[in-house]
Design a protein around this nucleic acid. Structure first.
Length: 500
RNA sequence: GUCCCCUUCGUCUAGAGGCCUAGGACACCUGGUUUUCAUCCAGGCAACAGGGGUUCGAAACCCCUAGGGGACGCCA
């Protein structure tokens, strides 16, 4: 490996998909990629994987870029700072993928597949029922040239899949795990080009990694099983392969893969809660890695200077905020003088005109300036001090309260453009669906969001607080109300879905 | 179901065959400092998943079992 490093520049990448909130897992993988590249004097690249037209959004892309920057995870090349290998947004690279798939079509290592998604669904169902391995059955592999030409003539929608060897194993080296061997029989004939003409991750990622001269692919463990497909594509093209390194996945406290259903995963949440970016980043660096000295508090520069990827431990670390809290406090105490502390607090509290939005709400309701702090404190708090008793109400049963809070959470998750009107619309709709007076309906939300039954407009408050804090508070409310059992959740989900 | 990966205190981890009676940190408990609390300091509790090998010697190497996780999309 040393020789390899000397011979060519190390280039690593983070390739987020702009399909949701900026995820701490993305930052985690980005951190290790960045440290590795910079430790070797190489480059760290950011590439936007927006080939899913339905789910990708510009808003999400902006949020992700902004969040990574906030954490100090800047990139040497990316969509906003073009290097020699652009464009860095996959949606702008369509011609590249088309010309490359042509090459494979010519070589006959891929084939057009005209199977309908209905047939494939059925096939999958059947395979599940028969407890067979799930995968494409090869129906279109050997279509005749005439047949294909005819179908194309008629404009039949189709995808392009890759051929897979029928026998043998795919063996590859993982930088941390050694040799991994997966039987080709386990590998599906992956779709490379979707019927909309855009590539899937598997295809775009290989083409781009090659063209962008990525030397080390450091990514999550979830990709191990699809690595054979990627390797095979390199082989079909006749390209050199990069070094693969699969990091352990961040986990929920129940050990499952970190997910927003069970945990706050949005970087925005941690920012809104008042964690310092350097502390959060330090904490991420602590997941699966330690400084050789054992020192637990370290900056990204120190991490880079001492980085050694072989010190990554493979057990999936639980993203448990207790230690993050301690670390964050340590940063505040040790690294900020009083003046800096004031500045940091002000920058956080008054971020993006937050006070300007809060002021008119408070002004309506205070009689003395000294009322401001107690009335408005929930805008600057994290978790609220509430209990089941806080939700006691004369007209609504406990079950109903739980339902209101849960449904509100789900409704708010549906909002694409976060603003006052969308929130109001969702809540009005929900109150009507539940056949509740808006006044009664809103009560538990007041408690969950502001901690009190009486406060500034709950809709305005939700708008100002943002989805991350709102989500956390509604979830806390669910929690103190005794939580929802799996059974309850199922029936609630059904009821919610019936609302349409 | 099939395949792949993983397994040291509750949590993050140190550990590269003898330095291990397994170390550090968070959390928790006790005590000290502090007008309270927090900080800070001192101490305590607490783990090698189980079973077989290999070896003079295993937390470490090999095998099996168990447990956990992941993948199996025209998502990434």
């Amino acid at each position: 490996m040393c020789q390899y490093l000397l011979m060519s520049q190390v280039r690593t990448r983070i390739a987020p998909s702009p399909t949701g909130d900026p995820h701490v897992g993305t930052a985690y993988i980005a951190l290790f990629n960045r440290c590795f590249a910079h430790q070797h004097g190489g480059k760290f690249v950011l590439r936007i994987e927006d080939t899913d037209q339905q789910r990708s959004s510009e808003k999400s892309e902006q949020d992700i870029l902004q969040s990574l920057k906030w954490l100090g995870l800047s990139w040497d090349e990316g969509p906003d700072c073009e290097g020699d290998f652009g464009p860095y947004r996959q949606s702008e690279r369509s011609e590249i993928y088309s010309s490359h798939i042509e090459q494979l079509l010519d070589k006959g290592t891929v084939f057009r597949c005209f199977c309908s998604s209905e047939r494939l669904d059925l096939l999958r169902q059947q395979q599940m029922q028969d407890k067979q391995q799930i995968g494409y059955d090869g129906c279109c592999v050997n279509l005749s040239a005439e047949n294909i030409a005819a179908k194309l003539e008629q404009g039949e929608p189709h995808v392009i899949r890759m051929k897979i060897p029928e026998q043998g194993n795919c063996e590859f080296e993982d930088l941390l795990r050694g040799t991994i061997s997966i039987s080709w029989a386990q590998v599906d004939m992956q779709v490379l080009i979707k019927s909309d003409g855009l590539p899937t991750y598997h295809f775009a990622n290989v083409v781009d990694d090659h063209l962008m001269k990525i030397s080390h692919v450091i990514r999550g463990e979830e990709w191990i099983n699809s690595t054979p497909k990627h390797l095979l594509l390199y082989q079909y093209f006749g390209w050199d392969i990069p070094v693969f390194c699969h990091m352990p996945l961040l986990r929920n406290p129940d050990k499952s893969k970190l997910s927003k259903r069970k945990n706050p995963t949005s970087i925005g949440y941690y920012a809104a809660m008042g964690y310092l970016p350097e502390a959060l980043l330090n904490y991420l660096g602590m997941m699966g890695w330690t400084m050789p000295s054992g020192e637990e508090k370290f900056s990204q520069e120190e991490m880079t200077a001492n980085f050694d990827i072989s010190r990554v431990s493979l057990g999936g670390p639980i993203f448990d905020t207790e230690k993050l809290d301690w670390l964050n406090g340590k940063y505040i105490r040790e690294d900020l003088n009083d003046e800096e502390f004031i500045q940091r607090f002000a920058a956080w509290a008054f971020k993006s005109d937050k006070v300007k939005m809060i002021a008119p709400l408070l002004k309506q309701r205070v009689e003395r300036l000294s009322d401001v702090a107690s009335l408005g404190s929930f805008f600057f708090s994290g978790e609220l001090d509430i209990s089941a008793e806080s939700f006691a109400h004369k007209n609504i049963e406990a079950d109903e309260i739980l339902k209101i809070v849960q449904f509100t959470l789900w409704k708010l998750e549906l909002i694409e453009q976060w603003d006052r009107d969308s929130i109001e619309k969702q809540l009005q709709e929900l109150a009507a669906q539940l056949e509740l007076k808006i006044r009664d309906f809103l009560f538990p939300l007041f408690v969950a969001i502001s901690g009190k039954a009486v406060s500034t407009s709950v809709i305005e408050s939700i708008n100002i607080l943002g989805i991350d804090i709102t989500r956390a508070r509604l979830r806390k409310a669910l929690d103190v109300l005794g939580g929802i059992s799996k059974k309850q959740a199922k029936s609630l989900e059904r009821e919610f879905r019936d609302f349409g």
